[in-house]
């Protein structure tokens, strides 16, 4: 297991480097000069050049990359062109908020998805199964920003129960676990949870249904196990796959919540990213994408290792 872990960690390095190069290049290939966004329209050529060299944009790309990644490795992602604040700080706060949202959505989605999926797989081809499948398909296919807007209309505008904007009453972006803040979390987290509920439920349903139709389940009954013990075996068999689906979903929630964060003005990484794009804030954009991608890589690593730890069929040597 230890050697497996070390080997997986070594594999991650080139992936991380590749990811960082792609992040860097993507931003540079994108059309538009980042300077035009922040320079006054009447800026002279000298002023532009000065700005350019201040941000290091006059150097060749590989050099820019080397400088950027070297500093990034030290935790310095440069300064935001738009706000002048360190990118690392901005990204840190935003990622923390996104994580908060993603974890909250997961806490809602995973138990519900697992529960519905397990029961649907267990009662396969019954009305309950069809109901769950219908719910799952609806959850996956309804555009979640639209759902977000509908929920805002119902619970914020009509009923006035819950706030629809921001991550807290003050708008400071500082999170605390109190009623006033948690109220802000409910609508975006519920909205974000809908897709993973559908995906987890569908996957687990298929998984559990398949396992129940396998011969060994009959053999377990044949040796005298009670129902509960057989269920334990089924869960053990389903766990590795279910776990990896949930891990990947968490990764998607983290990076894929741009629309939801925009709808709810949630100050997370997706929100930050869309601001960075519209303001052509190059360092901020690069930094945010890099951190999000590395999160995704890390999530995959954790999922793989956890899966190998609980699934004996995966060769660990």
């Amino acid at each position: 297991m230890f050697t497996y872990l070390v080997r997986r960690l070594i594999y991650v390095l080139p992936v991380a480097v590749g990811v960082s190069i792609i992040c860097f290049l993507l931003v540079h290939i994108a059309p538009g000069d980042p300077l035009t966004a922040i320079m006054p329209v009447d800026a002279t050529a000298e002023e532009q050049a000065a700005m350019r060299s201040a941000y290091g944009l006059d150097k060749p790309l590989p050099v820019q990359y080397a400088i950027w990644i070297g500093k990034a490795a030290m935790g310095d992602l440069g300064k935001s062109i738009a706000t002048g604040r360190p990118v690392a700080d901005e990204v840190f706060t935003a990622v923390r908020n996104s994580l908060l949202l993603a974890f909250s959505a997961s806490v809602i989605a995973f138990p519900i998805g697992l529960f519905l999926g397990f029961l649907a797989g267990y009662f396969r081809d019954t009305i309950f199964d069809r109901l769950v499948t219908a719910i799952a398909i609806t959850g996956v296919s309804v555009p979640n920003y639209w759902l977000g807007i509908v929920l805002v209309i119902i619970f914020s505008v009509q009923l006035g129960w819950l706030p629809s904007m921001g991550a807290g009453p003050g708008g400071s972006g500082e999170w605390t676990w109190d009623y006033a803040h948690v109220r802000h979390l409910i609508l975006p987290a519920v909205t974000l949870a809908v897709v993973p509920i559908g995906i987890v439920a569908r996957t687990v349903r298929a998984l559990v249904g398949d396992i129940f139709s396998m011969d060994f389940v009959q053999a377990l009954y044949a040796k005298g196990l009670r129902h509960g013990d057989v269920l334990r075996h089924v869960v053990r068999n389903a766990a590795p796959t279910a776990l990896s689906v949930m891990g990947l979903q968490l990764g998607y929630l983290l990076g894929g919540s741009i629309l939801i964060e925009t709808v709810f003005n949630w100050p997370g990484s997706g929100f930050l990213l869309s601001n960075a794009i519209f303001q052509r804030d190059l360092p901020l954009l690069q930094g945010t994408i890099l951190i999000l991608s590395l999160f995704f890589v890390g999530m995959n690593l954790i999922v793989d290792v956890a899966q190998a730890a609980i699934d004996p069929r995966i060769k660990r040597s």
Binding site: M214, D215, F216, A219, L220, H233, R236, N237, P312, R313
Partner: peptide, 16 residues
């Protein structure tokens, strides 16, 4: 008790 035709399918793959 019973011995099944396909031991590969009749044993639980994730238990020793």
């Amino acid at each position: 008790s019973m011995v099944f035709q396909e031991p590969a399918l009749a044993l639980d793959p994730v238990y020793t």
